[in-house]
Deep mutational scan, measured.
Amino acid sequence: MTGIVKWFNADKGFGFITPDDGSKDVFVHFSAIQNDGYKSLDEGQKVSFTIESGAKGPAAGNVTSL
């Protein structure tokens, strides 16, 4: 699925993605970002991701920028 990064705190390594389908915002951890180098996201960035079952509920996985 796709969405827009609502916010991401690079110091803490997590944030939230707002899915394009209008569903509830999804937690994203830096370890789910699939790019080389520094793993961070920018507010407003368009991303593709999967929904994984995290310890505290749904979380984004396999996050790639579009």
Rank of each mutant, 00 (worst) to 15 (best):
residue 5 V to M: 03
residue 22 G to K: 07
residue 22 G to I: 03
residue 36 D to W: 11
residue 24 K to V: 12
residue 31 S to P: 03
residue 48 S to T: 11
residue 31 S to Y: 05
residue 44 G to D: 04
residue 40 S to V: 13
residue 66 L to V: 11
residue 56 K to C: 12
residue 66 L to C: 09
residue 49 F to C: 01
residue 25 D to V: 06
residue 41 L to F: 05
residue 29 H to W: 05
residue 56 K to L: 12
residue 4 I to E: 05
residue 8 F to S: 01
residue 46 K to F: 10
residue 36 D to M: 13
residue 63 V to P: 01
residue 63 V to I: 05
residue 12 K to G: 05
residue 39 K to E: 05
residue 3 G to N: 00
residue 39 K to I: 07
residue 47 V to F: 01
residue 10 A to I: 12
residue 55 A to Q: 12
residue 9 N to A: 09
residue 52 E to M: 14
residue 1 M to T: 08
residue 43 E to L: 13
residue 37 G to H: 09
residue 64 T to A: 11
residue 19 P to R: 04
residue 55 A to C: 12
residue 66 L to R: 08
residue 18 T to K: 14
residue 19 P to E: 02
residue 22 G to N: 08
residue 8 F to Q: 01
residue 21 D to W: 07
residue 18 T to F: 06
residue 48 S to L: 12
residue 24 K to Y: 09
residue 51 I to C: 06
residue 6 K to S: 06
residue 37 G to T: 10
residue 61 G to M: 15
residue 46 K to E: 07
residue 13 G to R: 05
residue 24 K to M: 11
residue 11 D to E: 14
residue 34 Q to A: 12
residue 26 V to N: 01
residue 42 D to S: 15
residue 15 G to A: 02
residue 8 F to A: 02
residue 21 D to I: 07
residue 20 D to G: 06
residue 32 A to E: 06
residue 40 S to M: 12
residue 33 I to F: 07
residue 6 K to G: 03
residue 10 A to K: 15
residue 45 Q to F: 05
residue 35 N to F: 13
residue 48 S to Y: 13
residue 20 D to I: 08
residue 17 I to N: 00
residue 17 I to W: 01
residue 10 A to C: 14
residue 58 P to L: 13
residue 53 S to D: 12
residue 21 D to G: 08
residue 6 K to E: 02
residue 65 S to E: 10
residue 60 A to H: 02
residue 7 W to G: 02
residue 59 A to R: 15
residue 10 A to Q: 12
residue 20 D to V: 06
residue 7 W to K: 04
residue 51 I to R: 09
residue 33 I to A: 03
residue 29 H to Q: 04
residue 34 Q to I: 14
residue 49 F to D: 00
residue 23 S to D: 07
residue 8 F to M: 02
residue 53 S to N: 14
residue 39 K to L: 08
residue 46 K to R: 14
residue 61 G to D: 07
residue 26 V to D: 00
residue 62 N to R: 10
residue 46 K to S: 09
residue 59 A to P: 02
residue 58 P to D: 10
residue 35 N to T: 14
residue 16 F to A: 03
residue 37 G to K: 10
residue 18 T to W: 07
residue 36 D to Y: 12
residue 28 V to P: 00
residue 51 I to P: 04
residue 46 K to M: 10
residue 35 N to G: 15
residue 61 G to I: 14
residue 38 Y to I: 12
residue 17 I to Y: 00
residue 29 H to G: 04
residue 37 G to Q: 10
residue 8 F to V: 04
residue 26 V to M: 05
residue 7 W to N: 03
residue 2 T to S: 08
residue 23 S to Y: 06
residue 25 D to T: 06
residue 49 F to R: 00
residue 49 F to T: 00
residue 4 I to H: 09
residue 66 L to G: 06
residue 51 I to F: 08
residue 33 I to S: 03
residue 5 V to E: 00
residue 45 Q to A: 11
residue 27 F to N: 01
residue 66 L to P: 06
residue 36 D to S: 13
residue 31 S to W: 07
residue 59 A to N: 10
residue 65 S to H: 11
residue 61 G to T: 14
residue 34 Q to Y: 08
residue 58 P to G: 06
residue 31 S to V: 04
residue 27 F to L: 04
residue 15 G to D: 00
residue 32 A to K: 09
residue 13 G to K: 04
residue 29 H to M: 04
residue 29 H to Y: 06
residue 23 S to P: 05
residue 28 V to S: 01
residue 63 V to Y: 01
residue 47 V to R: 00
residue 52 E to S: 11
residue 27 F to T: 02
residue 54 G to V: 06
residue 59 A to E: 15
residue 19 P to N: 04
residue 58 P to N: 10
residue 21 D to T: 07
residue 48 S to P: 00
residue 7 W to E: 02
residue 43 E to Q: 15
residue 44 G to E: 03
residue 21 D to F: 07
residue 41 L to N: 01
residue 1 M to V: 10
residue 45 Q to N: 07
residue 17 I to H: 00
residue 48 S to F: 14
residue 43 E to S: 15
residue 56 K to V: 08
residue 12 K to A: 09
residue 40 S to Y: 13
residue 50 T to S: 10
residue 45 Q to W: 09
residue 50 T to N: 09
residue 38 Y to K: 13
residue 54 G to D: 11
residue 4 I to T: 14
residue 41 L to I: 06
residue 23 S to F: 06
residue 31 S to T: 13
residue 55 A to Y: 13
residue 9 N to D: 11
residue 9 N to R: 12
residue 61 G to H: 14
residue 19 P to V: 05
residue 21 D to C: 09
residue 37 G to N: 10
residue 9 N to G: 04
residue 34 Q to V: 14
residue 11 D to R: 15
residue 1 M to G: 07
residue 7 W to S: 04
residue 4 I to Y: 11
residue 11 D to T: 15
residue 39 K to G: 07
residue 52 E to T: 13
residue 34 Q to P: 04
residue 28 V to I: 07
residue 21 D to K: 06
residue 59 A to F: 15
residue 10 A to S: 12
residue 43 E to K: 15
residue 61 G to Y: 14
residue 50 T to H: 09
residue 11 D to L: 15
residue 36 D to R: 10
residue 45 Q to V: 09
residue 65 S to P: 15
residue 47 V to L: 03
residue 60 A to L: 02
residue 64 T to W: 10
residue 55 A to G: 11
residue 48 S to R: 13
residue 20 D to L: 09
residue 32 A to N: 08
residue 21 D to N: 11
residue 20 D to Y: 08
residue 2 T to D: 03
residue 13 G to A: 03
residue 15 G to Y: 02
residue 3 G to Q: 00
residue 15 G to W: 01
residue 50 T to Y: 09
residue 64 T to P: 01
residue 44 G to R: 05
residue 52 E to K: 11
residue 4 I to R: 13
residue 19 P to L: 06
residue 45 Q to C: 06
residue 1 M to H: 11
residue 15 G to K: 00
residue 60 A to K: 02
residue 25 D to S: 06
residue 58 P to F: 13
residue 5 V to N: 01
residue 34 Q to E: 09
residue 64 T to K: 14
residue 13 G to L: 03
residue 44 G to Q: 04
residue 23 S to N: 08
residue 11 D to K: 15
residue 60 A to M: 02
residue 57 G to D: 04
residue 61 G to L: 13
residue 32 A to V: 10
residue 1 M to S: 08
residue 14 F to S: 03
residue 2 T to E: 05
residue 66 L to W: 07
residue 19 P to M: 06
residue 33 I to R: 02
residue 58 P to W: 09
residue 43 E to W: 14
residue 2 T to I: 09
residue 19 P to W: 04
residue 30 F to M: 09
residue 58 P to M: 11
residue 66 L to S: 08
residue 34 Q to H: 10
residue 30 F to C: 10
residue 56 K to P: 08
residue 21 D to R: 05
residue 31 S to I: 05
residue 7 W to Y: 08
residue 22 G to H: 08
residue 44 G to L: 04
residue 31 S to H: 07
residue 47 V to Q: 00
residue 52 E to Q: 12
residue 40 S to L: 11
residue 2 T to H: 07
residue 29 H to V: 04
residue 33 I to Y: 04
residue 56 K to D: 08
residue 5 V to K: 00
residue 5 V to C: 05
residue 17 I to C: 01
residue 63 V to M: 02
residue 25 D to Y: 04
residue 53 S to G: 11
residue 66 L to A: 08
residue 64 T to D: 05
residue 35 N to P: 07
residue 24 K to T: 11
residue 23 S to M: 07
residue 66 L to H: 09
residue 60 A to I: 03
residue 12 K to W: 12
residue 27 F to E: 02
residue 1 M to P: 05
residue 63 V to A: 03
residue 3 G to V: 01
residue 14 F to R: 02
residue 49 F to S: 00
residue 21 D to S: 07
residue 43 E to G: 14
residue 4 I to A: 06
residue 28 V to C: 06
residue 40 S to A: 11
residue 25 D to A: 07
residue 49 F to Y: 10
residue 39 K to P: 09
residue 23 S to I: 06
residue 40 S to C: 15
residue 18 T to D: 03
residue 5 V to T: 03
residue 45 Q to S: 10
residue 27 F to Y: 10
residue 43 E to C: 15
residue 3 G to D: 00
residue 23 S to E: 07
residue 33 I to P: 02
residue 2 T to A: 05
residue 38 Y to V: 12
residue 63 V to L: 05
residue 10 A to L: 10
residue 7 W to R: 04
residue 64 T to L: 14
residue 59 A to T: 14
residue 7 W to H: 04
residue 58 P to K: 11
residue 51 I to G: 03
residue 21 D to L: 06
residue 51 I to E: 03
residue 41 L to Y: 03
residue 43 E to H: 14
residue 59 A to W: 13
residue 41 L to H: 01
residue 53 S to M: 15
residue 7 W to P: 00
residue 55 A to L: 13
residue 42 D to L: 15
residue 29 H to S: 05
residue 56 K to G: 11
residue 12 K to D: 04
residue 18 T to R: 13
residue 37 G to W: 07
residue 56 K to Y: 14
residue 65 S to G: 11
residue 23 S to W: 05
residue 54 G to N: 11
residue 45 Q to P: 01
residue 13 G to M: 04
residue 60 A to E: 01
residue 42 D to Y: 15
residue 30 F to E: 06
residue 2 T to R: 08
residue 40 S to I: 13
residue 7 W to T: 03
residue 5 V to L: 04
residue 62 N to L: 10
residue 52 E to H: 13
residue 57 G to L: 06
residue 54 G to I: 05
residue 2 T to W: 06
residue 34 Q to K: 13
residue 23 S to G: 14
residue 10 A to E: 07
residue 61 G to A: 15
residue 16 F to G: 02
residue 55 A to R: 13
residue 37 G to V: 09
residue 19 P to C: 07
residue 65 S to Y: 14
residue 56 K to I: 09
residue 34 Q to R: 11
residue 12 K to R: 13
residue 13 G to P: 00
residue 47 V to T: 02
residue 55 A to V: 13
residue 38 Y to D: 09
residue 38 Y to C: 15
residue 14 F to L: 05
residue 9 N to V: 05
residue 36 D to N: 12
residue 45 Q to L: 07
residue 64 T to N: 11
residue 36 D to P: 13
residue 40 S to R: 13
residue 16 F to D: 00
residue 37 G to R: 09
residue 55 A to S: 12
residue 65 S to Q: 12
residue 12 K to C: 10
residue 50 T to I: 12
residue 12 K to Y: 10
residue 17 I to T: 00
residue 10 A to D: 07
residue 18 T to M: 13
residue 34 Q to L: 13
residue 35 N to L: 12
residue 61 G to P: 02
residue 64 T to M: 13
residue 18 T to P: 00
residue 49 F to Q: 00
residue 58 P to A: 10
residue 57 G to H: 08
residue 55 A to K: 13
residue 58 P to I: 13
residue 47 V to E: 00
residue 9 N to W: 11
residue 26 V to H: 02
residue 16 F to H: 03
residue 26 V to E: 00
residue 57 G to N: 07
residue 42 D to F: 15
residue 19 P to T: 05
residue 49 F to M: 04
residue 17 I to F: 01
residue 25 D to E: 10
residue 10 A to P: 12
residue 30 F to W: 15
residue 21 D to A: 06
residue 31 S to K: 09
residue 53 S to F: 15
residue 54 G to P: 04
residue 13 G to F: 03
residue 66 L to Q: 08
